[in-house]
């Protein structure tokens, strides 16, 4: 590309925003608040558990009052971390090709992680301590 005799500001003026900034910003806050509440529940629950052996954990996660907040914690945490890591990538990876690669990779890994955790919770819920 030939060098343009324009400032960076001149080139973007009139194009408007990408129209996604405000939504991304808001989703970061909503997922942060949800993760804050749920991780608070998680830490208190962990500290109150009598032991951390598999039997205790499976029995605990077999209860709806533990399984549902845990599933929600997985969803909000992976939602939040996906957005956060993507902001970091967008700030430090400047080449468009590698930016696309890393953003896509983080999206895939976040969905994979959440999917694995949710299926594990589902299996514990339906098979219980018999597994």
């Amino acid at each position: 590309m030939s060098a343009k005799m324009e400032t960076a500001l001149k080139q973007v003026r009139g194009l408007g925003s990408a129209r996604e900034g405000a939504r991304h910003w808001w989703h970061e806050r909503v997922s942060a608040l949800a993760s804050l509440i749920l991780s608070g529940w998680f830490i208190v629950s962990l500290l109150r558990l009598p032991a951390y052996d598999r039997g205790t954990i499976v029995e605990w996660l077999g209860s709806p009052l533990a399984a549902v907040p845990m599933a929600l914690l997985v969803i909000t945490t992976f939602w939040h971390l996906k957005m956060g890591v993507i902001v970091v990538i967008e700030d430090y990876v400047h080449e468009e090709g590698s930016k696309l690669f890393w953003v896509t990779l983080v999206n895939f890994l976040a969905i994979l992680g959440a999917g694995l955790a949710l299926f594990a919770l589902f299996k514990i819920a339906v098979t219980g301590s018999a597994a």
């Binding site: 954990i57 956060g84 955790a117």
Partner: peptide, 26 residues
């Protein structure tokens, strides 16, 4: 810390998958 915690989320997944898999995995 956010980036570090994002990596550590793998531990949460591993914990749940191990609990769902069996005694040896746990």
């Amino acid at each position: 810390t956010g980036s570090g915690l994002a990596l550590a989320a793998a531990l949460l997944v591993w914990w749940l998958v191990a609990a769902a898999t069996g005694a040896e995995a746990y």
